[in-house]
Design a protein around this nucleic acid. Sequence first.
DNA 1: AGTAATTACGAGGTACGTAACAATC
DNA 2: GATTGTTACGTACCTCGTAATTACT
Lengths: 286, 286
Amino acid sequence: MELEQLRQLVEIDRLGTISAAAEELHITQPALSRSVRRLETDLGQSLFDRGHNSVALNEAGKLAVHHAKRILADVRLMRDDFDALSQRERTIKIASVGPAPTWCLTERVVEEFPRIIITPQLMDEVQAENALINRDVDFAILDREPALPTFQSIPLMGENLFALIPQENPLSKRSSVSFAELDEQPFLLFKGIGGWMNVVRTHLPHSQFIVQEDREVFLGLLEKSDLLAFSSDAPRNEVEVKGRVRIPITDSSARVVYFLVASKDIQGSASDVFQLMAAQEPTNLS
Amino acid sequence: MELEQLRQLVEIDRLGTISAAAEELHITQPALSRSVRRLETDLGQSLFDRGHNSVALNEAGKLAVHHAKRILADVRLMRDDFDALSQRERTIKIASVGPAPTWCLTERVVEEFPRIIITPQLMDEVQAENALINRDVDFAILDREPALPTFQSIPLMGENLFALIPQENPLSKRSSVSFAELDEQPFLLFKGIGGWMNVVRTHLPHSQFIVQEDREVFLGLLEKSDLLAFSSDAPRNEVEVKGRVRIPITDSSARVVYFLVASKDIQGSASDVFQLMAAQEPTNLS
DNA sequence: AGTAATTACGAGGTACGTAACAATC
DNA sequence: GATTGTTACGTACCTCGTAATTACT
């Protein structure tokens, strides 16, 4: 007895004729007819009342269909479990302190391993490190190299913070500014800037921050208000806003280097990705 | 994915090596090795951690074994149901008013259809008829032809009742006796004589009956006591007891003809048996 | 050495499709 | 006459067994 025969049986039950079922199953009528007879021989029982021009399930046939459905349902459960397993196998979870390095990494992976799916989650440094240690994620992207012996890390990309200053503001004429010079000014902040949030709050203790969640709204407000704002040189963060100039910030904390951190015993697709990123030059690393 | 592969998987799990499982399954090592690899390819997941000289289930493998066991258990349920069904198919239940005709029928069927199993049950005429009508049994053996239109019947055998009379008894010199002449005498009765029990109780209202269940004990008592007894000319009922003579009983009710009765719509093995018995001459039908 | 697994290769069997046929609606 | 099911026949594929290879205990 084979699973295929059980599938055929329930199809015949569903569609009523061998012809229709054969078409549905992409085999010929005679093939299906023979296959059913084999099943009957195997079970030692005829399953159909046969007319010359029609078939109908008899009692034994109905019993067989009942069992077949149960067996096939179990097979389907097995398949589903394995499909989920191989999906999980292909999915890499990343805890990152910033959005920019996840874009960088995703871009490379999509290009090289189109089947692999990257699912980044933004969180602070402590959470990211814990997620990695607890194996909740395959990778962490941190702004420093952790000193844990069972983990390996490689530099992924650098990112520099800039001030977006309206032309009317005197600071806009400068070639660079320091956090100290920006302190006490009110700022408009885009929420999705990751670790920069803590940096600016720490170094601009006297400034007020208006936080905007939506990037489009944030960009719109930039054009209409004269609040100061920040931008970085990460690819997707580089924005051109008319009436504003982008001034580098001199403080060392206005520059970060992101590291891709992983357990030393990673395997499978995570290992492939780690090797891929290790093999290439870090982005924007002056 | 095939059921055979699942069986192979659980065997490998049970025995620990591919070699041992292959031997158990009566195939060669390479065949089993390839079959397992096909399963792995099919599931898109390797199921074993492979050494050059050993295999061990990995997580996916354990999951697969779990599912496989469930599926195979369901398959076994299906097989069991069908085995029971074909056993039922081969088993013919008979309600009979006497033991002799069931022996006659069983003997013929065993000879012709060795696979068919006959299960006779002794009961009185009314019960037997009801059992047949309710389809609790496939056949009834009655001592008359029922007048039911949806049933068919054929004569099966005749049976004549004899008196077993000790030589000391004057009746033993007679060439025949009547019930009237036997009345008021005490009798030893064997319980397994079916419908004869009612016959003699009816026609010998003044006799006392000592009923014995065990045939061997009954025969033993016949030699030691001078009680009268009965015997019939049915093959297995013909007994020779020393010191006794077998005298025919003249009454018409001392003779019965058994009829095999069945529904007109019987099919399968019951139909085969009915036709077999219809084809041959009834036994002992003077 | 001995055991266990994998790879290579040839052979056999099994089930498929095509074609012809039978019998209903 | 169209649809549905079964039988006949040739073929292609697939899996098996044998034999050779590798590697571990």
